[in-house]
Nucleic acid binder design. Structure first.
Lengths: 172, 172
DNA sequence: ATATCTCATGTGATCTTATAACATTAGCAG
DNA sequence: CTGCTAATGTTATAAGATCACATGAGATAT
């Protein structure tokens, strides 16, 4: 049940602001971590896949596939949709990236390696996305599923609302 | 915390099977109920809106906007996307219909009138969708939101997995 | 009754998101 | 080096959603 307040508030600012250096370190650490996990699990973190992950880590917010594709092209990779979607498929399948269904957008996982049942808080004002953990099998949904004999394999839990930063701006 | 086992199992069959008569009654009752609520609340359940609701009740499963649009055209209504989207917007806004984000599809509300925090169970084999209630403010997500100072306005809770009917078919 | 205002609908164009299909290339196993 | 498998490149198209503007239908006020 972790929440990333940080990601809720730093979206409107350019991805690289005062904390540029720190963020660079955080990106490269996350990339190194991903490389390690791929090596361990026999997964191939190819250049496109690595670049897509790097983009999402760098931006630190939810990006649409076509935005990612633009950035891929800028970096000299193929510029057709499947290039981005295939890399995203790989990253999502292996838990490096999550898809935010409400936004049809993708965001780097904030808790890589851990057991994944992500939940997202999405600010409708600034579009910032924070990742938390959810415990789907516990609450009402889990009970309903058990009652119905439905086998849950994956859950989408997304809350839409107003982040603290935007709430402060609204009523001062 | 209600669950609709029915809607999980009757999707592969044509929408109108053995239970045709019963289902017709259930559709017309739901329509009458909707008309009553609209009258009470000063909402206009116009012909297109009513037809879209009728389609979703009749089919009793999640339909994409363009499928609905095709059925609208068959029924003599306009055939351009905004016709369907506008009717769906109205129905969703007023709680007669829900959008299933995972499927980019729409389904008639199974618990109209009640307080809405729907949760869905989506069978990845047969695409059937069952509606249950969720209690977002309770579990892990609610706690994370409170901790972060995030104001939840709406939640998307969708579980993907295998419905009992499809599970039975898989391992007999 | 009719002018007018508002909300709803019709329509064409466009935009965004996602996938299908097939050719090409890279890395690895024999 | 050969042949296999996985990944990438590229073209085309499907599927989902919105914009902008014209038309129509109902209510309200004169």
């Amino acid at each position: 049940m972790t929440s990333d307040l940080a990601s809720l508030s730093d979206k409107e600012a350019p991805a690289l602001g005062f904390h540029e250096h720190d963020h660079d370190i955080c990106v490269s650490e996350a990339l190194a971590e991903a490389e390690k996990r791929c090596a361990e699990q026999g997964l191939r973190l190819t250049p496109v896949r690595r670049k897509v992950l790097e983009i999402l880590l760098q931006e630190h917010r939810a990006l649409g596939a076509y935005t990612i594709l633009d950035l891929l092209r800028d970096a000299g990779f193929g510029s057709q949709p499947p290039v981005a979607y295939r890399a995203l498929d790989f990253l999502v399948e292996n838990g490096f990236v999550h898809k935010v269904e409400r936004l049809n957008a993708f965001v780097a996982c904030a808790h890589p390696g851990e057991n994944h049942s992500p939940a997202f808080m999405i600010c409708r004002v600034c579009d910032a996305v924070a990742e938390a953990h959810s415990t789907p099998s516990k609450g009402a949904l889990g009970a309903a599923a058990r009652a119905a004999g439905f086998q849950i394999e994956r859950t989408v839990v997304e809350a839409e609302g107003v982040c603290p930063a935007c709430a402060d701006k609204a009523d001062p």
